[in-house]
């Protein structure tokens, strides 16, 4: 396959995720109606009162809330993915140079295997009632880092063993120099793929937290919260539940597709990277 064709294929697979996250980010500015005031009857059907997708449980415009309800989810997930990838990259690189750190992180990852992420999020948000969105983000980062460090450390180990890093270490270079100047620049491809995977995981966790009502609180417009709030009216105005459901589903699918594209293809084994 020629380089241009491969580039085009890459762009096609990344495009849905970029378009959808872009739309979610600008959505709050292009809503046709107010997101917090009723414009039609509760669960008004599509078309009533000039609404394209009908009304929600208070008669607020579903389309406007749909446009407004994705930004926080996308921003939170991006932030979680960035923090997890950054922390994991540094810890993984340190672990490759200092084996003790690597072993400690490995044990913590073993322990966290026993803690379902959804329960972990609930544990943190309920123990920290004033935490709000910060609690969700903090919990998602803490739960994600150990797995990500395993990956980063695995990729950093061969680099740490390479001649030039050992030469620099023998030459008396400090730890941070080895990590930041010698190892991390060589992990770019792995870290990009890791970022994609952590974004997928973060969308799942942040959306689930929203659905369990420990993330954004009413009357905030949020896709996951819309599904929870409007589920009793699913027969009266299906769009009030289906539209945010499709939005979250498409976001998860497109981001997952993009992440799979970014993941290094090293044969069938690559599947275990997820």
């Amino acid at each position: 396959m020629s380089t241009t064709r491969r580039r085009a294929g890459l762009a096609v697979r990344l495009l849905p995720a970029l378009l959808l996250t872009g739309l979610a980010l600008v959505g709050p500015w292009i809503t046709p109606h107010a997101v917090d005031a009723p414009v039609t009857a509760p669960y008004g059907e599509a078309g009533a009162g000039g609404t394209l997708l009908g009304g929600d449980q208070l008669g607020r415009d579903v389309l406007s809330r749909l446009l407004a309800g994705g930004r926080d989810l996308v921003l939170s997930s991006l932030l979680v993915a960035l923090l997890v990838t950054g922390t994991a990259a540094v810890l993984g690189a340190i672990g490759a140079v200092r084996p003790l750190v690597g072993r400690v992180v490995e044990r913590i990852a073993d322990v966290l295997m026993l803690l379902p992420a959804v329960l972990g999020i609930l544990l943190v948000t309920l123990s920290w009632p004033g935490g709000g969105r910060l609690a969700v983000i903090a919990a998602a980062v803490v739960l994600g880092v150990p797995y990500a460090v395993r990956l980063a450390a695995g990729a950093a180990a061969p680099i740490a063993g390479a001649g030039y890093v050992e030469a620099a270490a023998a030459g008396g270079e400090r730890l941070w120099y080895l990590v930041v100047r010698e190892i991390l620049p060589n992990l770019r491809a792995v870290l990009l793929a890791l970022f994609g995977l952590r974004f997928v995981a973060a969308v799942y966790l942040v959306a689930t937290a929203g659905f369990l009502q420990v993330g954004p609180q009413p009357p905030a417009a949020d896709w996951a919260l819309m599904i929870r709030e409007n589920s009793s009216g699913i027969l009266l105005n299906p769009w009030s539940v289906v539209a945010p459901g499709i939005a979250i589903g498409l976001l998860a699918l497109s981001v997952n597709l993009a992440a799979a594209t970014l993941a290094p293809q090293t044969g069938r084994k690559a599947v275990t990277v997820l």
Partner: peptide, 18 residues
Amino acid sequence: ATAVLALPEFVVAVALVL
């Protein structure tokens, strides 16, 4: 398989119910 593994359960559940 790759497509469905990232779907949150509540989204799948709503689709199934519908």
